[in-house]
Design a protein around this nucleic acid. Structure first.
Lengths: 253, 253
DNA sequence: CAGTGGTCTAGACCACTGG
DNA sequence: CAGTGGTCTAGACCACTGG
């Protein structure tokens, strides 16, 4: 069998992969939030340096199996939330958890070229921009940046913005989101996002870029949301018929 | 400002983050496949140990900015392919690239409890299982595991399986996929997947678990596909109306 | 103040490639 | 055979928390 660079003759897998696999096995039956052996303990137990034990734990962390809470230690993680594209509040509630929103920043300003193009508005049109931190059962899970056309939602910033925005749109403004187009990509979190989500820099994140439309096909929301990839997954249902593919191609121009 | 554990008084950011940011800047104007300075060069240039320079490069690799080709060096990556949920062949072609498929394994067997439940079939029903490696312009990008009900696609394994399966379904069997439900999650690639996709173990991956249905709502395909997260993103269009949410809830039971 | 994870050093040997 | 990335060692100091 052909070997890849760096793979030793004597070890089928690198030590850190062997340790990660052993730990994964060991923890598979454990309760969420149960303690995981410390890096120093693992380095003794597996007779490797701490840097090598550390790599194994980092791997489990990036796959969402464990989480670190310095300086208390490392613990078994809960399983991921499977969210649908839509209202964070409604989705988290549906899954039997408690959603929270903290408004980090809210402002009204001219759309500008970039946001205007995304919302299908003149660059001089007014747009509300909300930055919110979303949590589940008190644990930070996502950062939202939401752009809403000011003409559709006059006085938005006077409402309470720590709940479901979609509920507010429907109730107060008669704006009814019915279709969304979203791009999902997997990226390491930058310093700022990692800090706000209370995870280490470069932890895996899911960046969801979304355009939401009402029944008339008008874009009523443009959002860029960053989710912790270790805590969330997305489920989508989509039309894959050739007709839908052609429609999407037209929308894109 | 409150500091998190491990952050020094004197450096706003860790050295590896500072180096990553500098490199990101430096490479932003570079052509894809241009060489990136070696880890040893970076460690001299930034006056850090090679392990620290290495962490910076690893970060850029995980965000898809560079790729490593040992022992030749590290190079600037191309931008991600934005795929829709559907036919890999059709999507890659639409984006102006050349799709390839290599059949790794094909077999027909009883569904069993797990796959049977996913396809809505009796555990004793026959199912075709295909394992394929998908590439774009010669670069491996995804691993597909596709399950198809044998009753819908008799003799499937006698056809050429190195092209679009959906085209084959439509053309040879009159099976027409019109709707898909997919779960997307971000996971580090395991050893086997990483090796087949020619990336390092634990590189970021997107695991797409998909149920595809025909116009009658029958599940005609159950697939688990693993994509390189550094090379791909997904775009989906989905119904987000309350009615659709209720429909999805009913489907799930 | 013991113990944790976060970061970092200054080396080492390895397999492999391409000139 | 020079140079690359892959892995690893055996330490070090740090900030922080909780008993």
């Amino acid at each position: 069998m052909r070997r890849v660079a760096g793979e030793r003759e004597t070890d089928q897998h690198a030590a850190y992969l062997r340790i990660a696999a052993a730990l994964r096995d060991q923890l598979s039956g454990a309760q969420p939030h149960a303690p995981v052996p410390s890096e120093r303990e693992l380095s003794e137990q597996f007779k490797v340096s701490r840097m090598t034990a550390r790599r194994a734990v980092a791997l489990l962390e990036s796959e969402g199996t464990v989480y670190r809470r310095p300086p208390r230690g490392t613990f078994v993680a809960e399983s991921r939330l499977i969210l649908r594209i839509g209202s964070f509040s409604e989705e988290v509630t549906r899954l039997g958890h408690q959603p929270q929103a903290v408004l980090l920043d809210a402002s009204t300003a001219k759309a500008g070229d970039r946001v205007g193009a995304q919302l299908g508005l003149d660059p001089h049109a007014e747009v509300h921009v909300l930055h919110r931190l979303r949590s589940v059962d008190g644990v930070p899970v996502a950062l939202e940046t939401t752009h809403l056309p000011g003409a559709l939602t006059p006085g938005l910033l006077n409402h309470a913005l720590d709940g479901s925005i979609w509920a507010l749109l429907r109730r107060e403004y008669g704006v009814d989101p019915v279709e969304a187009t979203a791009k999902l990509e997997c990226l390491p979190l930058d310093d700022r996002a990692a800090s706000q989500l209370a995870v280490r820099p470069a932890s895996p994140g899911i960046v969801l870029t979304r355009h939401t439309r009402n029944r008339e096909g008008r874009c009523v929301e443009y959002a860029v949301d960053t989710y912790r990839a270790d805590r969330t997954a997305f489920e989508v249902t989509t039309d894959v018929s050739p007709a839908a593919v052609r429609r999407a191609a037209r929308r894109r121009g």
